[in-house]
């Protein structure tokens, strides 16, 4: 049986990240993860921080660390714009670790230091954690490291 596919387009301020055909797509919506298959009804939603997964036919599953974006589905095209979207090989894990430590420190001091923007620190914490998580996912599945 031929698999039904749809077009996936993902752009960040740094350029195109993906412009592919896809079989399925899983995204972290602001209200929870959601999945998209071919011929999905027109949809518009905001994307939070998390792991985005998509797969094209017999290809391996792509895992991307995505943050703060938008998804529009119409006419079998899924258009995503996001602040950042990185595949595991594009993630600087050391930097993510550092960011995580920094965010942790900020959150710990937040009670005493009124200058700290808790929202921002929390978002930074989640972004860093998300990047690390994506790296971990891909270590388990080394075939997606090529």
């Amino acid at each position: 049986m031929a698999t039904k596919i749809f077009k996936l387009m993902l752009a960040t301020p740094a350029g195109w990240v993906a412009s592919d055909d896809a079989e399925y797509l899983v995204l972290p919506g602001v209200d929870g993860y959601l999945g998209i298959l071919a011929n999905h009804a027109p949809l518009m939603t905001a994307i939070g921080i998390g792991t985005m997964m998509y797969r094209y036919e017999n290809c391996y599953e792509h895992n991307l660390a995505i943050s703060d974006g938008f998804l529009e589905v119409s006419e079998n095209v899924a258009t995503i714009i996001a602040d950042s979207a990185e595949a595991a090989e594009g993630i600087d894990i050391d930097r993510a670790q550092l960011a995580l430590e920094r965010a942790k420190a900020h959150l710990a001091e937040a009670g005493t230091d009124p200058d700290i923007d808790v929202e921002r620190a929390r978002a930074a914490y989640r972004r860093a954690l998300n990047r690390i998580k994506v790296c971990e996912i891909c270590d388990i599945k080394p075939k997606s490291m090529d």
Partner: peptide, 27 residues
Amino acid sequence: PHDYIFEPDPGKLFTILIPKYARTVIF
């Protein structure tokens, strides 16, 4: 225009999108 499903509601989406739009203007 398509009959979109909005999640969360369009008003909220707008609130999220507008500041991002402002940022692209600055960019």
